[in-house]
Amino acid sequence: MTARTLLLTALAMLAFAGNSLLCRLALRETEIDAASFTSLRLASGAMALWLLLRLRSTRPDGAGSWLAAAALFAYALAFSLAYLSLDAGAGALLLFGAVQLSMIAWGLYRGERLAHGAWAGLLLAIGGVLALLLPGASAPPLGGALLMLLAGLAWGVYSLLGRGIADPLAATAGNFLRATPMALLVSALLLGRASWDPPGLIYALLSGAITSGVGYAIWYTALRGLQSFQAASVQLSVPILAALAGSLLLDEALSLRLVLSAAAVLGGIALVLSARQLAGVPRPGQARRSGP
């Protein structure tokens, strides 16, 4: 891995973790509502991606699909609603775990076989998610947790729909453009409950334009210098970065339950990925997958 690829990869992981941090910060510390945050995130992301494509004299016309856009919209809305109650670290862990597990489950459905070590890793990861959801003083709110699992499932679907696309950046821009009116429709239906303030607007725009739009562009550039296993493995850092940032910047507690669950989920997924790499089996959609 070259120094340039390493730098781009690190920036992309920071951007992905930043999405969790900005969303939680906006919904906890400002007046903006979840629907408005989602609309602004998708709209500003679409604009940033469109501008990036214009810089390379490309237009997103015809790129992407309405089905992928619907999955993107479902992810973004559930993500925002979940962060009304979840801490940044717990939310990122549930999101990441759901994305990875849904893609692994799709591979099994399509007939992929797992080695014994991979099965052990899969069971460990599922156990880690369940342990985090068990009732207790340090358990995340169940409603928020289920919404984040739904967000992860939607992003897994979105990732699988993007397998093998020739121009992932153009497709992402097209999907953001299609998803924006869906979010605006929800905002219009909930207009009576809408609220915002300048800090909330800024956080939403930063989440959409920088950590989503520019972040995805950086990730697609970094992917050119990464092997498939490296691209999959490096994303294990995202929940850890989000948890540390939440603890340092938002004063969120790093509970023992969260630490142990993170170790189980991330360690289990790492076992699955390692077993696939040794067996020469690609992870479904991994080469074209962007980050949440």
Rank of each mutant, 00 (worst) to 15 (best):
P60R: 10
M103K: 04
A3G: 12
S57L: 13
A204W: 07
V234C: 13
D33E: 04
T9M: 09
G267M: 05
G213T: 13
I240A: 10
P198S: 06
T9A: 15
I210N: 07
S65T: 11
L153T: 12
W196H: 06
A154G: 08
G64Y: 02
L93G: 08
A151H: 08
A183M: 04
S102P: 12
Q286P: 01
L226H: 02
P135F: 08
S85E: 15
L254A: 08
A139D: 05
G117W: 07
R59E: 13
A166M: 08
M182V: 09
L223I: 10
Y220P: 01
G136C: 06
L273H: 03
A263S: 08
L55C: 15
M148S: 03
G117V: 05
T30W: 08
A231R: 02
A270E: 09
P135R: 01
A253G: 04
L260I: 14
L53A: 13
F37Q: 03
M103P: 05
L236C: 00
G162D: 06
G107M: 00
W219F: 13
R178V: 00
S65F: 08
L132Y: 10
E252W: 11
G111A: 04
V281A: 14
L52C: 13
G156M: 08
A204H: 05
A90I: 02
A151L: 08
Y75T: 09
R288I: 04
L52V: 14
A34N: 03
R110V: 00
M13F: 08
L108I: 04
R41N: 06
A139F: 07
S187F: 10
L14G: 13
A183W: 11
A173W: 11
Y220E: 15
D167W: 05
V272C: 12
I202N: 06
T58M: 12
A194C: 00
S212K: 10
I202L: 15
W66I: 07
L22Q: 02
A71P: 00
R28M: 07
L8Q: 14
